[in-house]
Amino acid sequence: SEFSSRSGYGEYVQQTLQPGMRVRMLDDYEEISAGDEGEFRQSNNGIPPVQVFWQSTGRTYWVHWHMLEILGP
């Protein structure tokens, strides 16, 4: 990996993601499973900070930056 740390990767995702971009989950996290795909909606200063609309659940759920792989527009 070109990223030395999880936080470095998270910063990359945070700087790159734009609303509407497709993402894939890298880790299991509460209701969301690794491999689930969705659409980035928004972020804020909460914890976790990233709101994604997940195809698997049909609704939005908040996750962490480093848990997401960017699939593209």
Rank of each mutant, 00 (worst) to 15 (best):
G46E: 14
Q18R: 11
G10C: 12
W54S: 01
G58D: 11
Q55H: 15
G72P: 15
F40S: 04
Q51S: 07
A34W: 02
Q42A: 08
Q18N: 05
V13H: 08
E69I: 04
I47E: 15
S43P: 00
S4I: 11
F3Q: 06
P73R: 12
G46N: 15
Q51A: 06
W65F: 07
Y12C: 06
W65E: 12
R6A: 14
F40W: 01
S56W: 05
I47K: 11
Y29Q: 02
M25I: 00
W62S: 15
G72S: 13
E37Y: 05
Q51L: 04
L26I: 09
I47W: 09
Y61A: 15
R41H: 03
F53T: 08
S43Y: 09
A34F: 02
N44E: 07
A34H: 01
W54T: 01
S5M: 12
E11V: 09
F53C: 07
H64C: 06
Y12A: 10
F3H: 14
H64A: 01
W62D: 15
H66V: 06
P48N: 02
E11M: 12
E11S: 10
S43R: 02
V50F: 00
H64N: 06
F53W: 13
W62T: 03
P73D: 12
G10V: 13
Q18F: 04
Q14H: 05
H66C: 05
G20Y: 04
S43G: 03
I47S: 14
W54Q: 00
D36M: 09
M25A: 11
Q51T: 00
S56E: 06
Y29V: 10
G72L: 04
M25P: 01
R6E: 14
F53V: 11
D36I: 02
R6S: 12
P49I: 01
W62H: 15
Y12W: 14
D36E: 10
G72I: 02
S1W: 06
V50Q: 08
T60P: 12
G35P: 07
G20Q: 02
F3N: 09
H64E: 07
E2A: 07
N45F: 07
W65G: 03
L71S: 09
W65I: 03
Q55L: 12
Q18S: 09
G20A: 04
S4F: 07
Q42C: 15
Q15R: 13
S7Y: 13
G35Y: 00
S5L: 11
W65R: 06
M21L: 01
D36K: 01
V13N: 09
Y29W: 12
W54L: 10
S43H: 04
Y61H: 14
S43L: 00
S43D: 15
Y29A: 08
R6Q: 14
D27A: 13
G8L: 12
L68E: 01
W65Y: 08
I47N: 15
S56K: 13
Q42R: 10
I47T: 14
T57G: 09
Q55E: 13
Q18M: 09
Q55A: 11
L26D: 10
F3D: 14
F53N: 05
G8Q: 15
S7D: 04
V52K: 05
W54A: 05
R6F: 11
T60F: 06
E2F: 15
T60M: 13
D36Q: 00
T60D: 06
Y29G: 04
W54F: 15
Q55K: 11
H64W: 04
F40P: 03
R6G: 08
T16D: 06
D36L: 01
E30H: 11
R41A: 03
R59N: 12
H66D: 13
D28C: 05
Q55M: 14
G35Q: 03
L71Y: 04
